[in-house]
C-alpha cells in the first residue's frame, strides 16, 4: 500500500520537475530572443554582441580549454574559501548562539566588520598579498564568513528549548547536547547560510580576480575586455551565471539529503 503511494508520488514529482524545466527553457528562450532583437538595433558589436556571436565565443573558449581551465580555478578558489570560512564561522557561530559570554565578546567586532563589502579590502589586500591565489582567496573568505557566522548563531540561538530540556533529563553532558541536539537542530539554518555565503562569494570572485589574480573567470573577463572582444567577455559572464545557478542547485540538493526531516525552508 505505502509502496504504491510512494511510487505515485514519485511519478507526480517527475512530471512537476519536467514542467519546471520547461518553464526555465521558455523564460530563457524569451530572454535570448529579446537580446537578439536588441542587438540588431545596437550598431556597435563592441557594446552588445548578438547571442549568436556569444555562442560562438563560448564554443571556441570551450574547445581550446580556456573556459574550463578558468572555471575550474575559480570554482576551486570558491570551494576552498567557503570551506575555510565555514570551518571557523560555524563553530564560532555555535558559541555565539549558545553562550552569552561569546556573544558579548564577538558581537561588536562582527557588526562593525560585516557591513564592509569584501571588495573594499582589495586595495589593502593587494599590498598584503600581491597578485596571485591569496588575494581572491582572502576576499572570498571574508565575503563568505559573515553570512555563515550570523546564520549559524541565529540557528543555534533559536533551537527549541524543549529539545534541550529533553536531552538534559536524559542525563546528557553539555558537549554532547551541543553535538547531538544543537548542531542537528541548527543544521537547516547553517545550510541556508551556506547558500547565501556561496552566492555572495560568486559576486566577490569576479571582482577579486579582475584585479588581483593571474587567472580565473574574473581575470579572463578583464583580459578579453582589454582585447576588445566583447563576445568572449559575455561568454565568461554567462559561464559565471550558469555556475552560480548550478552550485546553488547542488547545495539545495545537499540540504535535502542532509536534512530530510526539514520539509520547509532549507530543504526547498
Amino acid at each position: 500500500m505505502s509502496a504504491v503511494l510512494s511510487t505515485d508520488g514519485k511519478t507526480a514529482n517527475g512530471f512537476r520537475r519536467l514542467d519546471g524545466a520547461f518553464v526555465y527553457l521558455r523564460t530563457m528562450a524569451l530572454f535570448v530572443l529579446a537580446w537578439y532583437v536588441g542587438s540588431l538595433f545596437v550598431p556597435s558589436k563592441l557594446l552588445l554582441p548578438s547571442p549568436l556571436a556569444v555562442a560562438v565565443a563560448l564554443r571556441d573558449t570551450a574547445l581550446n580549454g580556456e573556459l574550463f581551465g578558468n572555471a575550474l580555478i575559480s570554482l576551486a578558489r570558491l570551494a576552498a574559501s567557503v570551506v575555510g570560512a565555514a570551518a571557523i564561522a560555524v563553530p564560532l557561530g555555535l558559541l555565539m548562539g549558545r553562550s552569552r559570554l561569546w556573544n558579548d565578546l564577538l558581537e561588536l567586532p562582527v557588526e562593525m566588520l560585516r557591513p564592509i563589502a569584501g571588495i573594499a579590502w582589495i586595495p589593502l589586500a593587494l599590498y598584503l598579498f600581491g597578485i596571485g591565489h591569496r588575494l581572491p582567496l582572502f576576499i572570498m573568505f571574508y565575503t563568505a564568513f559573515f553570512p555563515l557566522l550570523i546564520g549559524t548563531a541565529a540557528g543555534a540561538a533559536t533551537v527549541d528549548k524543549r529539545l534541550i530540556a529533553a536531552a538534559r533529563t536524559m542525563g546528557l553532558s553539555s558537549p554532547r547536547i551541543m553535538w547531538r541536539v544543537i548542531v542537528p537542530a541548527a543544521l537547516p539554518a547553517i545550510l541556508v547560510s551556506a547558500r547565501l555565503a556561496v552566492a555572495a562569494s560568486w559576486t566577490a570572485v569576479v571582482a577579486a580576480e579582475l584585479v588581483g589574480a593571474p587567472n580565473g573567470l574574473g581575470y579572463a573577463i578583464e583580459y578579453y575586455r582589454s582585447m576588445l572582444s566583447t563576445p568572449t567577455v559575455m561568454a565568461f559572464i554567462v559561464t559565471i551565471g550558469l555556475l552560480g545557478f548550478l552550485t546553488d542547485k547542488g547545495l539545495r540538493l545537499l540540504s535535502r539529503a542532509l536534512t530530510p526531516w526539514a520539509r520547509t525552508g532549507a530543504a526547498r
Binding site: A165, M170, G171, L187
Partner: peptide, 26 residues
C-alpha cells in the same frame, strides 16, 4: 536533571532529525 528521572513532555519534544528508532535509543 538526572537520568534516573525520565520525563515525558506535554508536546512530546521528539527530535525531528531522528527517526522513531533514533529517538527511542537517544
Amino acid at each position: 536533571p538526572g537520568a534516573e528521572r525520565g520525563v515525558m513532555f506535554q508536546d512530546y519534544a521528539l527530535f525531528p532529525w531522528r527517526t522513531v528508532r533514533g529517538n527511542v535509543e537517544f
